[in-house]
Amino acid sequence: MKELKIGCGKPTGSKVGEPGREETAGVEAENKKEAAMSVAKVGAKAPDFEAPAYQAGGFGQVKLSDYLGKWVVLCFYPGDFTFV
């Protein structure tokens, strides 16, 4: 995780929807097309994003495509301090 400089002025909005780096051959042309449309679908490239994050006492910038070559589980949830 790239370290993030903390200040008050920086909005936390995220870059999203750019297709990930084409690093591995053998992904069908169809998948590339899907990624360009930037909609998450099974069998399609996961839309890339970059966003601020907190981990292990520090703030950083996370980019999904930095995890190419690894299995990734991406878990959305309604909010911090919610019950489930």
Binding site: V16, V42, A44, L68
Partner: peptide
């Protein structure tokens, strides 16, 4: 990001419990 992944609920302003398994090629 949640909008692109189809889990953002605009009315509530929160994201549903969406879980995506992404392989090493970046494919869902």
């Amino acid at each position: 990001i949640g909008s692109v992944y189809g889990v953002y609920n605009e009315d509530a302003g929160v994201e549903m419990r969406g879980r995506f398994i992404i392989d090493p090629d970046g494919v869902i």
